Simulated scan of single mutants.
Amino acid sequence: MKVRTLARKARFLRWALNFYPPYIGAGVRVRHISADFQQVQVKMGLGWYNRNYVGTQFGGSLYSMTDPFFMLMVMECLGRQYIVWDKAARIDFIAPGKGPVFANFAIDEALLTDIRTQTAAGDKYLPELHVDVRDGDGTLVARVHKTLYVRLKPRERQAA
């Protein structure tokens, strides 16, 4: 039953993000969120609304298309007993985005196990993750580095 509930939650979140005004304005579309929240696929087209002065993808839009996903994925996978925040981010622009761009996010059980282990005594943990933004030909356009803040909630720390 839990798998069915997660699948429904993933579909709803995908739908909600696709109607989120900043994403509509930037041309960002969430194409897929896996039922276990361990994979997300995002696309951003190139239009007048997200094109910069030289006619390529605006850097702020490239970053915004990647902003919330690692935090949301880790939060959903770990459950309500954890605090999960974005702590830091950095984007490296590699090549101009001259058309639609794509980001495929993935986390695995090894990462989740590592987070649980590092936070078991109540300590904070700052995992570093990255996602590549690529164009339709697979050319690397940007690489986004994210640092998350993860810690057990206070009531869970007391129980540990």
Rank of each mutant, 00 (worst) to 15 (best):
A10W: 00
L13D: 07
W15F: 15
W15N: 08
A16R: 14
L17A: 13
Y20G: 11
A26V: 10
A26D: 02
A26G: 11
V30L: 12
V30W: 09
R31N: 07
R31L: 14
I33N: 02
Q38T: 05
Q39V: 03
Q41R: 12
Q41F: 04
M44T: 01
G45L: 09
G47L: 08
W48C: 04
Y49M: 14
N52D: 14
F58T: 05
S61A: 14
L62R: 02
Y63C: 12
T66P: 06
F70G: 03
L72A: 10
C77T: 13
C77P: 13
L78P: 07
L78C: 09
Q81Y: 09
Q81H: 15
A88C: 11
I91S: 03
D92K: 11
D92H: 06
G97A: 00
G97F: 00
K98L: 10
P100A: 15
F102Y: 15
A103R: 07
F105E: 10
F105M: 06
I107W: 05
A110L: 11
L111G: 05
T113F: 04
D114E: 15
I115A: 09
Q118R: 14
A121W: 03
A121E: 12
G122L: 01
Y125E: 03
L126K: 12
H130T: 15
V131S: 08
V131N: 06
V133D: 00
R134D: 00
T139C: 01
V141K: 10
V141E: 02
V144Y: 06
H145P: 02
V150M: 04
R151P: 01
R151E: 07
L152D: 07
K153L: 13
K153N: 07
P154C: 02
R155C: 00
E156I: 07
E156G: 02
